[in-house]
Simulated assay, not measured.
Amino acid sequence: MIFSFLQSDTEQKVDSLKQEVARPLDQVTDKVMTWWDTFIDMVPNMFVSVILFLIFLLLAKAGQKLFVKVFNRSSNNQALENLFSTIIYYAILGLGLFIILGILKLDKAVTSLLAGVGVIGLALGFAFQDIAANFVSGIMLAFRKPFAIGDIVKLSDFMGTVSRTNLRVTVVETWQGQEVYIPNKDVLSSPIVNYSILGERRIDLAVGVSYADSLEQVQEIIEKTLKGLEGVIRHDDMIFTYYEFGDSSINFEIKFWIKYPKNPSYLEMRSKAIKAIKKAFDEEGITIPFPIRTLDFGIKGGQTLSEMQIHQAGNSPS
């Protein structure tokens, strides 16, 4: 009797254990069956979604090509073309994705995803604000076009030729042969000096002549010499001015224009002008004086070294 009781109790425990094991298995089975039924119901929608995805993929490529074709008619900026064509491509794909997710009844998932993307985007915006500033500045520079590739410019104290530019940096090749990568936000916030955009540049030369020379003759020689020099333009806009009485010369400044940056270069043209002026002065007997200093050896002033020697010689004992 005791044995029967123990056997009955053991069977009850086994049955209870089977029920506890069977319950989660039944739940999993029911869930899998529900998913399967849902999948079967969604097969037509999934088929439509695949078709829509292919259609929007073709539309995105067609829209990108159409934009590039239209954009090239008004601008040749490669950076802007790549930027906006990419934006249009993914914008069309994004629109198709939202429609497809709606067909698949995943609207709530899209809402949660957008909320998460917004938070992540805000965090990244603070973390990469310098990169974002350079990116926006690059777009503004592309639209404003203060310089083009090959222009001679001065940007942030660096002077040279613009070799290339993108939406993050502007690259300037200096006269010393180095490439300088200047962030676009610094380019946009600093003065931009473009020496190529007008195609002309003025050279200013300062010279001094002797007090004994005729100032009218000097001006006539300078103007005649520079006007006859190849490469000088805008002869009527040449400016000649005397501006000071120097220690040993009367100083003047001549300002004349050349084509720039065409050959001859600015430095070469300035050198040619200096040599031509020196040659003309030599032929006409015009003097460019050396600096003169008068030494005074007297205690109270007004005595030269020779006078002091004579005075000392007269007072010396015989």
Rank of each mutant, 00 (worst) to 15 (best):
residue 2 I to S: 14
residue 3 F to G: 02
residue 10 T to Y: 05
residue 11 E to Y: 02
residue 12 Q to G: 01
residue 13 K to V: 15
residue 15 D to L: 10
residue 18 K to C: 08
residue 21 V to Q: 07
residue 33 M to Q: 11
residue 34 T to P: 00
residue 35 W to R: 05
residue 43 V to H: 02
residue 46 M to Y: 07
residue 49 S to R: 06
residue 50 V to G: 04
residue 54 L to M: 10
residue 55 I to G: 00
residue 56 F to P: 01
residue 56 F to S: 05
residue 57 L to Y: 08
residue 60 A to G: 08
residue 61 K to M: 06
residue 63 G to K: 05
residue 64 Q to C: 08
residue 64 Q to W: 01
residue 73 R to Y: 06
residue 74 S to G: 01
residue 75 S to N: 13
residue 81 E to W: 00
residue 83 L to R: 04
residue 84 F to C: 02
residue 86 T to F: 03
residue 91 A to L: 15
residue 92 I to N: 02
residue 94 G to T: 14
residue 96 G to S: 05
residue 100 I to D: 06
residue 100 I to Y: 04
residue 101 L to W: 09
residue 103 I to V: 13
residue 105 K to F: 01
residue 106 L to E: 12
residue 106 L to M: 14
residue 110 V to P: 01
residue 111 T to A: 12
residue 111 T to F: 14
residue 125 G to H: 07
residue 131 I to W: 00
residue 132 A to I: 15
residue 137 S to R: 09
residue 139 I to P: 00
residue 141 L to T: 01
residue 144 R to Q: 11
residue 156 S to G: 00
residue 161 T to F: 01
residue 166 N to Y: 04
residue 168 R to N: 08
residue 171 V to T: 10
residue 171 V to R: 08
residue 173 E to F: 08
residue 175 W to R: 13
residue 177 G to K: 07
residue 177 G to M: 08
residue 180 V to N: 04
residue 182 I to C: 01
residue 184 N to L: 03
residue 186 D to E: 15
residue 189 S to K: 07
residue 195 Y to C: 01
residue 200 E to T: 11
residue 207 V to M: 11
residue 210 S to W: 11
residue 210 S to R: 07
residue 214 S to P: 03
residue 214 S to L: 02
residue 215 L to S: 06
residue 219 Q to P: 01
residue 220 E to R: 12
residue 220 E to L: 06
residue 222 I to P: 02
residue 223 E to S: 08
residue 223 E to N: 07
residue 227 K to G: 09
residue 230 E to Q: 11
residue 234 R to L: 13
residue 246 G to M: 12
residue 250 I to Q: 11
residue 256 F to D: 13
residue 263 N to A: 14
residue 263 N to D: 13
residue 269 M to S: 13
residue 272 K to Y: 07
residue 277 I to T: 05
residue 281 F to G: 06
residue 288 I to D: 10
residue 288 I to H: 04
residue 292 I to L: 10
residue 293 R to T: 15
residue 295 L to A: 08
residue 295 L to E: 15
residue 297 F to D: 06
residue 301 G to Y: 14
residue 301 G to R: 15
residue 302 G to P: 03
residue 306 S to G: 02
residue 308 M to E: 15
residue 314 G to Y: 14
residue 317 P to Y: 14
